[in-house]
Design a protein around this nucleic acid. Structure first.
Lengths: 135, 135
DNA sequence: ATGTATGCAAAACATTTGCACCTGG
DNA sequence: CCAGGTGCAAATGTTTTGCATACAT
């Protein structure tokens, strides 16, 4: 139940937060922008402001419930956090997003950070291309 | 000489283009935002509009004279293109940007795209961390 | 009750665009 | 001369914020 997740995350259980979480959990589309979530809310008859959607998603990110991807600069999409780190492949034609995990890359990144004297805190990797269906 | 580079890139040699290119070539700071370039122009006494700086940088990108990096979503910086592909390490404290090349990662990316049926067109990899001097 | 959350409208921000004017070849 | 480039101001799209009101605990 969503209320539990919210309470555990230290967030007060409010209608907008429950509804946004419901949308994220029930969508077939794993990656949604704030606007997408907002539209989905309107479609399910919820009167929630776009500003609130942004606020809620940002809080969810802070609480570790979702993660934010920054696609092509100036457009964020959110995905439910499932604990498993992964990177993304994006189709530049249909905007499909696929996920992948690659231990070799993960390890090399750590090695590079070390070499350069950086304490790695995060990384972002996007592979852009044309997916099977769009070729 | 800058005029040559511009002509070769198929761009008419105009004052704004020459000046922007000069800034990029003479700055110690390899990575500059449009705003940075604009300010540098003002400081060197050039009256060039910010809109023009954006237009020029975009044309330069198209012509392969510079490449555009999209840092943390919604803020682009430009670097002179030197022909060598590389990725970036960013210090989250001092905003320093370092470059690196890693063939293992490059190759793995290609392999992943292939596996997923994507025809890879591009990729972006940023490692975030705290640099030696900021730790 | 009371501190937090929300809605709305307005602001912020980086970037782009329309249009009249200017300029390079 | 004339296509293309520029400056300015206004528009854009996304995200954030101020503030008065509403709500969860």
């Amino acid at each position: 139940m969503e209320s539990q997740d919210l309470r555990q995350a230290g967030l007060k259980v409010t209608l907008p937060r429950v509804k946004v979480l419901e949308i994220l959990e029930n969508t077939t589309q794993r990656h949604m922008s704030a606007e997408d979530v907002y539209k989905a809310l309107l479609e399910s008859g919820e009167e929630i402001g776009l500003a609130t959607v942004y606020r809620v998603l940002t809080q969810f990110e802070g609480a570790g419930l979702v993660s934010r991807l920054s696609i092509d600069g100036g457009h964020a999409v959110f995905e439910l956090e499932d604990g498993s780190h992964h990177d993304h492949l994006l189709c530049i034609k249909c905007n499909r997003i696929e996920e992948f995990v690659d231990d070799v890359i993960e390890q090399r990144q750590r090695a590079i950070a070390l070499e350069k004297g950086f304490e790695m805190t995060d990384h972002s990797l996007y592979i852009y291309g044309i997916c099977r269906d769009c070729q």
